[in-house]
């Protein structure tokens, strides 16, 4: 019963809002370039489907690449930090500086360095920059949170550093990492789109550029269409990562217990 309502209530609300929106736009004769009706937005999906599909693919590819890159580099650096305090002391402040500097402010610089002809690489770097830090910070914390007594037990039985890392620290850090991945997945999407805005028109062809371009031409319905696709992408990323989290943790982790009921 409860489960059933979880889906039907928001869907019903969504449909009601769309219907009200459609009616209000027609009734008050709102101009298209201020607020297009849902039907006009739907029409834009049909008319611009080639451009929208290409833009979606471009953005999606950059987000996935940036996310995977952030995952690999974040975990690798966290492992390095957990192994050596000196490395952490040396590098952590710079990781923080990269994190706190707004991506939109670094974007023009990165674009110039990478070059307009490789704009995709520039977007990739910028999306990676924002997605990377939560993974690094959380995984480092997770690796350091191993139970002191368990570490002692491993040492008592002559475990190597590698065994402690592989059998104790990494499994223990998994809930931290999965939590960070949910945040980073969303950030990679934001990073990719913001970077495209910052890069200007140039040769970028993702959804961020589509929104800018459509805005310049007052194609508000195309802007809405691109916006809707971005939301769906964001939600899909979040759901996929939540499913992964559940698959890996539900058997043993406290966070998954209450959901079992």
């Amino acid at each position: 019963m409860k489960n059933w309502l979880t889906y039907t209530v928001p869907v019903a609300l969504g449909i009601a809002v769309l219907a009200l929106w459609e009616w209000a736009v027609a009734h008050y004769e709102v101009p298209r370039f201020v607020l297009p009706a849902p039907s006009a937005i739907a029409q834009s999906f049909v008319d611009d489907h080639a451009q929208l599909a290409a833009a979606t693919w471009t953005t999606f590819r950059i987000v996935i690449e940036a996310f995977l890159l952030a995952l690999v580099t974040g975990v690798a650096l966290a492992i390095l930090f957990a192994q050596s305090r000196i490395v952490e002391l040396a590098l952590y402040p710079y990781a923080v500086i990269l994190q706190v500097t707004p991506v939109i402010a670094i974007a023009p610089l990165i674009v110039i360095w990478v070059g307009y002809e490789h704009i995709d690489n520039a977007l990739l770097i910028l999306a990676w920059l924002v997605a990377f830090f939560p993974i690094l910070a959380n995984t480092t914390l997770g690796l350091r949170s191993a139970d002191r007594n368990l570490v002692d037990l491993f040492r008592l039985y002559g475990a190597s550093r590698w065994q402690i890392l592989w059998k104790l620290q990494l499994p223990g850090a998994l809930p931290y990492l999965l939590g960070a991945m949910k945040i980073s997945g969303g950030l990679a999407l934001i990073g990719a789109v913001v970077a495209e805005f910052a890069a200007g028109t140039g040769t970028a062809t993702g959804l961020g550029w589509t929104i800018t371009e459509a805005g310049n031409r007052l194609h508000i319905e195309t802007m809405f269409a691109a916006l809707a696709i971005l939301s769906v992408l964001g939600v899909a990323i979040f759901f996929l990562l939540s499913a992964l989290e559940w698959a890996l943790l539900h058997q043993w982790h406290e966070s998954a217990i209450s959901r079992r009921e």
């Binding site: 368990l150 037990l153 491993f154 059998k167 104790l168 998994l174 982790h253």
Partner: peptide, 18 residues
Amino acid sequence: TLMPWRSALDNARLPLEL
């Protein structure tokens, strides 16, 4: 001080494994 991601058997097996 058990490892929550391991079953009772796999926890008991740890010293031998190491």
